[in-house]
Design a protein around this nucleic acid. Structure first.
Lengths: 203, 203, 203, 203
DNA sequence: AATGAATGAGTGTTCATTCAT
DNA sequence: TATGAATGAACACTCATTCAT
């Protein structure tokens, strides 16, 4: 139907208080992840997700007001761990250690289920989805870390955005090429990040 | 349905020899670009493209065997200039100058029509399209340039892939954020590229 | 487009367990029969069938994975009775009686809805449909009957095939000409069958 | 080119019996035959026929007012020889010989290009085509032969129709099964025809 | 709450036919 | 007369979403 109607709610229809509901919601989200991973966008439709989750299509719509809401939930789930890692990184004394911690987290996260990660990155850009996925806080944290690592950096927000973009670009591409050597990839990503920062330091 | 061709052809159906045909083909490809740019994937359907091109749907299919072929043609058109720039860069004496030339080309190209560029980057990843768009030669050129710039680099192919990915990531993100200051963006991309190379030099 | 299933399934998509579904399926098949009967191949499209069945096009595709599957289902429905008649014929003591029984069944069946029968005979020959409609068993039964009727016949399988073909040819043509005198037609078909067998007996 | 120019010198500038138009028409009809034979109904479209004939689609429509007209022309061409054979058969003294002559002609004709013959038989039944193809005279000839062969036959017209139908049915089916032993098939068809006539003789 | 049958707007694609050149 | 670019009605099929049970 009309996907353009901007007033569509993307929040879950109900906050599950019962454990059974929570399980159902979780199974639906995981089913979405699996479908996206194995079938790609072409196979990613609500009926398939419901079937994979062992749930009726009606139930899916009981918990998610629409397909986009399901996508958002999945993105949130996948972002969650990274969010927590960022919080941990903030507590580290050394700013460099914090950055390295974060880089490691990003690489591992993205390479855990590379196809899923890549596809979700694309979904994040969809107008219907963007704005629903909480980037701001994450970016604020990253900005903080950079501010501490390079106190004299001219535009830490820009740097944070740039670094996010290049790390994501590199790791997505690596995942797509089928790379599995996390060590090597992390080494290169660190090179990119610290290389960028060293050349950008002041302006 | 057409059961005969198991492998869909992505090459243009007929090479237009008459000038009228050439115009039609060009107008269709440009219409595709505009639709993608203004409506995004959601509005990107063959009927809309034909309508925007001021052409019947039948004409579209006379020149493109399918939607994917149209996408491929559009990607090729957009890649064309960059291809040529890469060839020019190869002729420059200084390897550093070559790299900078290429970076500038990439940034300008990607920021010319940022949304279009971003969406085409996504399309390039689609299984139905990948393999039809000639990356190999481009990557070979880039590898050559890196080989000359950093003769002692351990894995120039990996570096080329990484650099492509990070540049694309950075510029796409910048375009999406609405950045227009090409100078500044180029400066940062150069920082990223040369930073990466300096930290990666040997292994 | 669905690129996943290289071999289109012709089996019904889901076996309806609820009575409502069964009704829907039956109404769709009967609608297909009526459309084919009244409009011929030209009007036989899925949208028209759905409309005639008083059902949405989506429902049609929920039970039949494609147009051909619907055709197959219709052929099966029309063949069903004949199949059962053949089984009954096999139980008759006299082989001649069995043959006559079968002939009568074939004539009546084919003349019940002559146009439909003729059109389905044609559809049976379509590459996409042939092989899905169970002829083998029917031919085996017919071969058995012939074997019993003419024990010394040189090639009962060939005879069975010939007889099927000539009976079908005669009755289809008669139906097309608008014949309604079943008695007379049966008489001629019997003449053809027993005439063929008497002249072919041994070789 | 070379062959053509040499022919130009040796042959008259224009063949008086065949104008260039006639050649074009013939090539189109033969192209239609080939397409139907090799691609079946699915590939049988006017553009494909024109291409195979080495003629523009516009030219095709210059000679045939529509697709059906082309089909009719093809049916007529294929029926032509059989028509002539029927005329020859009429001149034979012995009625039995005439019938056998005709049967042989029918079998050979139908088995020459079996797929084409079968497909054309189907086309003959299409409402848009039926009535355009001259059956009456052919049936009259066949009726005459039967009248002479079995002077006391009650309904020679009915017999002629029945025999046409059963012969066509048998030979089409044989062709479809890939039979190539013309002798054997002719033997069986004769058995069917004379068997039918012997059992039907009077009423 | 859960189910799954039903919906129908939308999309890719074909092909007979026309007509300007 | 010949060409072939252009047309657009028609059709098979999908899938997000609803709602009666």
């Amino acid at each position: 139907m009309n996907e353009r109607s901007s007033q569509k709610r993307l929040r879950p229809r109900k906050t599950p208080t019962q454990s059974r509901s929570e399980e159902t919601v979780a199974s639906i989200v995981e089913a979405a992840a699996q479908i996206l991973e194995t079938e790609g966008f072409d196979g990613f439709n609500t009926n398939a997700v419901a079937a994979r989750a062992g749930v009726s299509i009606g139930s899916l719509y009981q918990y998610f007001p629409g397909k986009d809401a399901l996508t958002v939930a999945l993105i949130r789930r996948e972002t969650q761990r990274f969010h927590e890692d960022a919080a941990v990184a903030l507590t580290l004394r050394s700013a460099k250690a914090a950055l390295e911690y974060l880089i490691g987290a990003a690489v591992r996260q993205q390479l855990q289920r590379p196809r899923l990660a890549r596809l979700l990155d694309i979904e994040e850009g969809r107008p219907a989805v963007r704005g629903e996925v909480a980037k701001p806080e994450l970016e604020r944290m990253a900005t903080d870390i950079i501010r501490r690592a390079i106190p004299r950096h001219a535009y830490p927000e820009v740097a944070a955005a740039d670094l996010f973009a290049m790390v994501k670009g590199m790791v997505d591409a690596a995942g797509e090429r089928g790379e599995t050597d996390i060590e090597y990839l992390e080494y290169r990503v660190r090179a990119a990040v610290f290389g960028y920062l060293s050349k950008t330091r002041a302006r």
